Computed example of a mutant assay.
Amino acid sequence: MTDPQFERGPLAAQQALRTVVEKGADQAALSTLAHSEVLVPAATDAEGPAPKALTLPVFEQEDGTELVPVFTTQERMEHALPRMRRHRSVLLGVLAHGWPSDLSLVIDAGTPEQLALTANGVRALLDRGDI
C-alpha cells in the first residue's frame, strides 16, 4: 500500500524519487516507486502488437557497468534518449521482481531526481510482494 503523502502517477513517482535521493531509503517513497508505472525504452520500431516478453535496453558504461534506464514520463525519456520514441509501460515493482543479477537500473537519467541502483538494490528496495 502506498503512503497517502504520495499519490499515483508520474508526478508521485518523481516526488518519491526526490525523497529517496534526498533522504535515503524512505519506505513510503520506495513503496510509491514500486507501485508506479515506468517507461522502458523499446529499441524496435516495428509496428504491430507488442511482444509478449519485455526486452530490457542495456547500456554499457565506460567502466563496464551494464545498466537499464527507465523513465517516469515520455518527456524525460525523450530528453535522455532523443532517438528513442517507443516504450513499454510496466510497474516498477513487477520489473524489480524478476530483475537480473548482473544489471543496474537508473530511473529518470539526467534529471535532478535520477536514482541509480545496483541489481541487489533493485531487488532489495523495489521488489514488493504485494504487486
Rank of each mutant, 00 (worst) to 15 (best):
L11G: 11
T44Q: 11
A96G: 02
A116E: 14
P4H: 01
V40I: 13
Q27N: 13
L39H: 04
K23W: 09
L56S: 05
Q114V: 12
L33V: 08
R18M: 13
V20I: 14
A50D: 11
A96T: 09
T73N: 07
T19A: 05
P51D: 09
A13E: 02
G93R: 00
R86Q: 09
D102V: 08
Q27H: 13
M77R: 01
R8N: 08
Q61L: 15
G110R: 03
R76P: 07
P57Q: 10
G93A: 07
A13L: 13
E113V: 14
E37K: 09
L67P: 06
P51F: 02
L39M: 13
T55R: 12
D102G: 12
E66V: 07
A96H: 00
A80C: 11
V21Y: 02
L30Q: 00
T32Y: 00
E75D: 12
S101N: 14
G64W: 03
R76C: 07
S89K: 15
A13K: 00
D63S: 07
H97A: 15
V90M: 15
P4Q: 03
P10W: 00
P41V: 05
G110S: 05
S36Y: 05
L54F: 04
A119D: 06
D63R: 02
L91E: 02
L67D: 11
H87F: 15
E113T: 15
P82C: 03
E37R: 10
A42F: 10
L11C: 11
D3K: 08
A96F: 02
P82R: 06
L103Y: 03
Q14T: 10
A34W: 01
A119P: 05
V21C: 04
A43G: 13
M77T: 07
E62T: 15
T118L: 04
L103S: 05
G110N: 07
L39K: 01
R86W: 09
P4Y: 01
A25G: 09
F71G: 00
P49Y: 04
Q15N: 13
H87E: 14
Q114A: 14
D45T: 13
E7T: 15
D3W: 04
G48E: 08
P82D: 05
V106I: 15
Q61E: 15
H97I: 08
R86S: 11
P82K: 06
G9N: 02
D26R: 02
L56A: 04
V58P: 06
H79W: 08
A96P: 06
L92T: 00
I107M: 02
R18A: 14
H79G: 07
K23M: 10
M84N: 10
R86D: 10
M77Q: 05
G48S: 04
L105H: 01
K23F: 08
P10T: 02
V70M: 01
A12T: 03
V20P: 00
Q14Y: 07
T118P: 04
A80F: 03
S36D: 03
G93Q: 01
S89D: 15
Q15K: 15
T118D: 07
T111N: 12
A28E: 00
L95A: 01
V90C: 10
D45F: 11
M77F: 06
T72I: 09
A50E: 12
K23D: 12
K52A: 14
A25F: 12
G24D: 07
L11D: 13
T65F: 03
L11A: 15
Q114R: 08
D108L: 03
Q27E: 15
